[in-house]
Amino acid sequence: MELRNLKTFKVVAEELNLTKAAKRLGYTQPTLTLQIQSLEKELNHTLLTRIGKKTLLTTAGKKLKVHVDQIFALMDQMEKEMDELRGPSGILTIAASDYYCTQHLSPIIRSYTELHPDVRVSLLPLNSVHAIQSVKDQVADLAIIASDCHEVDMRQTFLEEEKTLLVVSSDISKGRDLEEIFRQYPFISYDKDCSFSSIIDQYFKTSDLQPQSMIVVGGSDETIKRAVLNGTGYAILGENIIKNELKDGSITILQPVSESIITSIISLKVRSEEPNIQTFNEFIQGAW
């Protein structure tokens, strides 16, 4: 049984239109017809029938299609695994927040692609919640997240623990105590769809003070930092994003926050041994 004839049947069974199938395969229609007839003769079954202008699969054709689909799916998997033995190549899609993309990943990706020039990295800017989902849906191969991932089918590797701080602009903090700042200024918050919101919720659950008002600005660390610097209000931010502002004195720490940001990299366990995923996972642990 020739594989070429099975491939022809597969396309015909998908199209159920000989003209379209011939065009897709690059054959003339008589050639395609001869291949189907050869397969029918070998199997001793009619595979196609016509009712009016419609081409339909016979019962034997339907059964054969199931087996043919399995054969070609297995062949695709075989080719993929053989390709993987040659090492990392193709596109590696990484989901991460804007902050991780701009502040951490650029030099890491540059060094990684110098080591593996056949890999092209694509960054997908997403907050941690959406980044986890993108890996589950296999839209992204890997994700850098700032939260725990409780998905049993995920592999999670620790990268960094970062302190979180309640902060305000130094202009606002001058001559005002914590209660006064809470009373006079709004709390600048991430939206509820952001993993950072759990740190905020935990802080206010155990705090004696509660914000009198709140402004939700989304999931961007940089946007919230700018709002703090502009004197809009106070916020909880990771230590890394405000280290320069703490150093130059433009931002003041009001209180340390007990909950830390845990940065990690995740991927699906079933895909963890794919060359692109495995090599980047190993590389980033040393480079972060």
Results as ranks from 00 to 15, higher is better:
Arg110Met: 07
Ala143Glu: 01
Glu179Cys: 06
Val135Asn: 03
Asp137Thr: 08
His67Cys: 06
Asp69Trp: 15
Pro125His: 09
Thr93Ala: 09
Ala146Met: 06
Met154Val: 07
Pro88Trp: 04
Ile172Leu: 15
Asp83Glu: 15
Arg110Gly: 02
Leu105Gln: 06
Ser173Gln: 12
Met78Gln: 11
Glu161His: 01
Thr93Arg: 15
Leu178Cys: 06
Val68Gly: 12
Asp177Ser: 06
Glu84Trp: 15
Val121Cys: 13
Arg155Gln: 12
Phe72Trp: 06
Leu124Tyr: 09
Val168Ala: 15
Leu159Ala: 02
Ala146Asn: 13
Ala140Trp: 03
Lys163Met: 02
Pro107Arg: 05
Ala96Tyr: 06
Glu84Asp: 13
Lys136Ser: 10
Glu161Met: 01
Asp153Gln: 12
Asp118Gln: 10
Gln103Phe: 09
Ser134Arg: 04
His67Ile: 04
Val152Arg: 05
Ala73Phe: 12
Met82Gly: 04
Pro88Lys: 04
Tyr99Asn: 03
Gly90Lys: 13
Asp137Trp: 14
Gln103Thr: 04
Gly175Lys: 14
Tyr99His: 03
Ala95Arg: 03
Asp137Tyr: 15
Ile91Pro: 00
Met78Gly: 03
Arg120Asp: 08
Asp118Trp: 12
Leu123Gly: 04
Arg176Ser: 08
Leu142Glu: 03
Asp69Phe: 13
Val129Leu: 13
Pro125Thr: 04
Val167Ala: 01
Lys174Glu: 08
Thr93Met: 11
Val167Met: 07
Met75Gln: 15
Leu124Trp: 07
Ser173Gly: 02
Leu92Arg: 13
Thr93Asp: 08
Ala143Pro: 05
Tyr100Trp: 05
Lys174Ile: 07
Asp153Lys: 11
Thr157Glu: 13
Val129Ala: 09
Gly175Met: 14
Arg176Gly: 05
Asp148Ile: 00
Cys101Ala: 08
Glu84Met: 15
Asp177Leu: 10
Gln103Cys: 07
Arg120Ala: 07
Asp83Ile: 06
Val152Trp: 04
His130Ala: 12
Pro107Met: 03
Gln133Lys: 08
Leu85Asp: 05
Cys101Asp: 05
Gln70Tyr: 09
Ala146Val: 02
Val152Gly: 01
Asp141Ala: 07
Leu159Cys: 00
Ala95Gly: 01
Leu142Asp: 04
Arg86Ile: 06
Cys101Arg: 09
Leu124Cys: 06
Ser147Ile: 04
Gln133Gly: 01
Glu151Asp: 11
Ser169Gln: 02
Thr93Ile: 10
Thr93Gly: 08
Ile94Thr: 05
Ser111Trp: 09
Cys149Lys: 00
Ser97Ala: 03
Glu160Leu: 07
Glu179Trp: 11
Leu115Tyr: 10
Leu142Cys: 05
Gln103Pro: 04
Tyr99Arg: 03
Val152Ile: 04
Ser89Tyr: 05
Asp153His: 12
Ile145Val: 07
Asp148Trp: 03
Gln133Ile: 00
Asp171Ser: 14
Met82Ile: 15
His130Glu: 13
Ala73Lys: 15
Asp171Glu: 15
His67Met: 09
Val121Leu: 14
Ala95Lys: 02
Asp76Ile: 07
Met154Trp: 11
Val68Ile: 15
Asp137Lys: 13
Ala143Arg: 02
Lys174Tyr: 14
Glu81Gly: 09
Glu160Lys: 10
Lys80Leu: 11
Asp98Gly: 01
Met75Trp: 14
Pro107Lys: 01
Met78Thr: 07
Ser173Met: 09
Ser170Glu: 08
